[in-house]
């Protein structure tokens, strides 16, 4: 039996929380299928991170410490992964569904002629088989995916399980990586521009989705409710993509992650990337025509109906209630 290789990520010198979540999944399936858990940490000046991971469940941690890995580079990272796969005899390779995972996981899978199950929220052991669980159609359906071959590569959704906490005996093994000429070059990381609208500070957010229909309708229907409640207006990604509102209004994993006292989602179906950005809200009201919309899974209270009928009346009722 091969081993399970966890491709850990370093952020600001520390192993990411998402990587310890991978360790949790790896330990679960490793124990049940008799696979050892091993890990890869790559970067520059990562010995503390590698040491910590080896003491917190990462098993044998291969540490690829190289100037070529100081910033994320596809070719350098891929070379490190190849070396780690060779050193670990892994047949199950786990990454996080993060920008690094998006870039790297398919390259690993294709190079091994292996399958990739991406953005999984769970993996279970059934007999000697692994079964992966992931969503399709932007969260509308769940699925069971069964591998037909090994090796396999999977990426797991950050936050899908708790980070591994238990202590386990591991060790750090230095991994030398030879990085030749690279086809890609890291230039810089840009931090998002200062925001004119800081939704993270709002107590109440009223957000609209694509079905609001136009920039004008946002001002006519969504903004008045936000104003009546004394809150801020937000939006889902398709609204910002369409140019109806600037990026600073976007709630979601690629926009702002918010946790107001009240979040009102109007005509938002609840794609995963939006839910990640607002599910920590204290109280969520969802208004949507589609009773099966995933937004109703995270909402406290739902209205199955037309936002154009409900929202204006709600706005008036709020104004009346406030006197």
């Amino acid at each position: 039996m091969g081993s399970i290789l966890v491709i850990a990520e370093i952020q600001k010198g520390k192993v990411r929380e998402a990587s310890y979540e991978l360790v949790s999944f790896a330990r679960k399936i490793g124990g049940a299928t008799n696979r050892e858990v091993k890990s890869l940490v790559m970067g520059q000046g990562i010995s503390a991170g590698a040491e910590e991971l080896s003491k917190k469940g990462g098993g044998e941690v291969f540490a690829a410490d190289d100037a070529a890995l100081a910033n994320y580079n596809l070719d350098a990272a891929f070379a490190a992964v190849q070396a780690a796969i060779a050193a670990s005899s892994a047949d199950v390779i786990l990454l996080s569904n993060t920008p690094t995972g998006w870039d790297l996981a398919p390259r690993i899978a294709a190079s091994l002629d292996a399958g990739l199950a991406s953005d999984c929220f769970n993996v279970e052991v059934e007999g000697s088989d692994l079964v992966f669980f992931r969503r399709f159609f932007n969260g509308k359906f769940d699925s069971r995916l069964r591998p037909t071959a090994l090796p396999l590569v999977a990426t797991m959704q950050p936050g899908a399980t708790a980070a591994f906490e238990g202590a386990a005996d591991g060790k750090v093994t230095a991994l030398s990586v030879s990085v030749g000429a690279t086809g890609t070059k890291f230039v810089e990381t840009k931090v998002a521009a200062a925001k004119g609208v800081d939704l993270t500070k709002a107590d109440i957010i009223v957000s609209g989705g694509r079905s609001v229909g136009s920039p004008e309708k946002f001002q006519e229907v969504i903004k008045p409710l936000a104003d009546a409640l004394g809150g801020a207006m937000g939006a889902s990604r398709p609204v910002v993509d369409a140019g109806w509102l600037p990026h600073e209004y976007q709630v979601g994993s690629s926009g702002q992650v918010v946790s107001p006292k009240l979040y009102v989602a109007c005509g938002i179906s609840g794609a995963i990337q939006h839910l990640v950005g607002m599910k920590a809200s204290n109280f969520i009201i969802a208004i949507n025509k589609d009773a099966d919309a995933p937004i109703f899974e995270v909402a406290n209270v739902g209205v199955v109906g037309d936002l154009f009928e409900v929202v204006p009346k709600l706005t008036e009722a709020i104004k009346t209630a406030k006197g």
Binding site: G115, L145, P147, L152, A286, V298, G302
Partner: peptide, 17 residues
């Protein structure tokens, strides 16, 4: 390399009232 064994509507958890 992976088969979709089953596609299904996510189980209703607590869900909204």
């Amino acid at each position: 390399k992976f088969k979709i064994e089953k596609l299904y509507t996510p189980p209703k958890g607590q869900g909204a009232e």
